[in-house]
Amino acid sequence: MPYHFLEVAITPNVRLAQAEMGTDQIWLGDHHRESDHFTDSELAFISERDSFYIASVSETGWPYVQHRGGPKGFLKIVDKKTLAFADYRGNRQYISTGNFAANDRACLFLVDYPRRARLKIYMHVEKLALDADPALTDLVFDAGYRAEAERIFRLRLEAFDWNCPQHITPRYTEHEVEKAVRPLRERLAELESENAELRTRLEALGGK
Rank of each mutant, 00 (worst) to 15 (best):
Y3P: 09
L6K: 01
V8A: 13
T11W: 01
T11A: 00
L16P: 14
Q18T: 03
E20V: 11
G22P: 08
G22Y: 02
Q25W: 07
I26Q: 04
H31F: 13
S35E: 12
D36R: 11
F38L: 03
F38I: 04
S41M: 15
F45Q: 05
S47W: 09
E48H: 12
S51P: 00
Y53L: 14
A55K: 04
S56V: 03
T60G: 05
G61S: 06
W62Q: 13
W62P: 13
W62E: 13
W62T: 13
P63N: 06
V65A: 08
Q66E: 10
L75A: 11
I77V: 05
V78H: 07
V78Y: 00
K81D: 08
T82S: 06
A86F: 09
D87Q: 00
Y88Q: 06
R89D: 09
R89T: 07
R89P: 03
N91P: 00
Q93R: 12
I95R: 06
S96C: 02
N99T: 03
N103C: 11
N103A: 09
C107W: 13
L108S: 05
F109N: 02
V111L: 09
P114F: 06
R115H: 14
R115K: 12
A117F: 14
A117W: 12
R118V: 07
R118F: 03
L119S: 01
L119N: 03
K120R: 14
K120S: 11
I121S: 01
I121K: 01
I121V: 01
K127L: 14
D131L: 10
A135Q: 08
A135N: 08
T137C: 10
L139A: 06
F141P: 13
A147D: 08
A147M: 00
R151I: 01
R151Y: 02
F153S: 00
R154I: 07
R156K: 14
R156L: 10
L157N: 03
W162M: 04
Q166V: 06
Q166M: 05
H167T: 14
H167S: 15
T169L: 13
R171M: 07
Y172N: 02
T173V: 12
E174K: 15
E176D: 07
E178M: 13
K179V: 13
P183E: 02
R185L: 09
E186L: 01
R187T: 02
L188H: 04
E192H: 09
E194G: 11
E194W: 12
E194F: 10
E197Y: 10
T200D: 15
E203Y: 11
L205I: 14
G206L: 10
G206C: 04
G207K: 15
K208R: 15
K208L: 15
